Amino acid sequence: MTPDDVGRYAESLPEVKRKGTDARPAWYVHDRLVVRVHDQDTVVIRVPLGERERLLETYPDAFGVPPRMEAHHKVEAYLDRAPAVAVHAAIDLAWEMQRR
């Protein structure tokens, strides 16, 4: 996947809007973060903590949680090795959590 693929998928979800900068675009629903580009190979996705563990167990090579994110509802997705289905699943979780 690429950051453009991530953006297209995020924008396909109802009420998701692109914000951020050209270098670091982000997508929000109701002004709440869904996904943000960190760099060309990494995006940060906001997910419920309980679901984060499931994502990490199901796709151990696709996702990670650096120490700075351990206390937050976030996971990094590594686009160079994450299958699209995994990234889409995480974005869907973020969208569900944030649209409420």
Rank of each mutant, 00 (worst) to 15 (best):
V47C: 05
E57Q: 11
A10Y: 02
R81A: 11
E11Y: 05
V65F: 11
A86N: 05
V43M: 07
Y78L: 09
M1Q: 09
A94D: 03
E51I: 02
L56S: 07
A90N: 02
A62T: 04
D5A: 13
V47G: 08
A86P: 03
I45P: 01
R54L: 10
D22G: 10
M1R: 05
G50H: 12
H38P: 00
E11Q: 11
H73D: 14
H73S: 14
Y28R: 11
K19I: 00
L55A: 02
H88F: 12
I91F: 03
K74P: 00
D22A: 09
F63V: 04
V35A: 02
W95I: 01
R81Q: 14
K17E: 15
P25Q: 08
L55V: 07
R54M: 08
A23R: 13
M1N: 04
E76A: 14
E57D: 13
L56P: 02
R8L: 13
V35M: 01
R52G: 11
V16K: 02
D4L: 13
Q98S: 15
E57I: 04
S12W: 08
E51P: 00
V44D: 14
R68C: 09
H38G: 01
L55N: 02
V85N: 12
E11I: 03
R18E: 13
Y28I: 03
A84Y: 09
V29K: 00
E51T: 04
V34R: 00
P60A: 09
H72S: 12
